[in-house]
Amino acid sequence: MSIITPPETDQPEEPTARPMPTHRMKEYLSRSYVRRILIMAVIIMAITVALGWVVVGFMNMTGAPASDIMGDLEQTVLIFTIASAPLIAITLSTIFYSLIGWKHSSGDEPPMQDSPAIRTNAFAVIVWITATSLLAGFLVVWGLIELATITSNAYGSVSANQQPNDVKQIDINVTGQQWVWSFEYPDQQGITSDYLVVPVNTPLYFNLTSEDVIHDFWIVELGVKIDVNPGAITNTGVTPTKLGTFNIRCAELCGLHHAYMETKIQVVTQAEFDAWVRDKGGMKTA
């Protein structure tokens, strides 16, 4: 391009001439449809952000988060909603305005005249790519940090006999079979149960395996989920922070009575837990 110099004065209105960005932006904002779309976008953005709380509200319908993990992931849902709100708002406000503002009035016939031939717009493309990349980058970074935190706190942490002595942790062996859960407490003399009783504020560490098909161990209100596979042992962990009784469900289709494969987890105080262990025939926890 540098070799060919354009003629000096032949074309007073060069198509390559560009106004200064500030002037351009000012002129752009003076167009009525731009302002209307922006206003709509702001409104939609507000609604989207509000919807983030609605989503979390539905997740909390059976009570507030019962573990840090559940709290963390509700926070993630909120943050992700807020982060993607601008792009959603621009998209939706454009299609709404297209339907309302740019609609061709007599729909039976094609418009008399074609629309402006906009082939591309470098500015819009660059801004869009930058914005979506930043958003995706943010989601990735947030997700990685979040995952690392959860992993180091509870998820996939080490087994009890490798813990430092001051950390009191309860190992639980979970066996899934069609269509019941069974739980074994190896540190409590191997007592077994078909529902879980655990002390509050104590890290739990689950070893899981299945005797037949794949199940999925889901403590709903604690935000813990892991597949229970035949022929393999998976691990997960969580620290319940709230007293109460919560749901354990199977979240992987496992055959005839998959729908009924559920049980309870009772989060109780340490004293109550010790009493329960004694009733079951186990010794007091160390």
Binding site: L73, F80, G143, G223
Partner: peptide, 13 residues
Amino acid sequence: YLSDVPVDQYMHG
């Protein structure tokens, strides 16, 4: 939401 591993702990399945 679903692309995020921790959130998937709740929403998967």
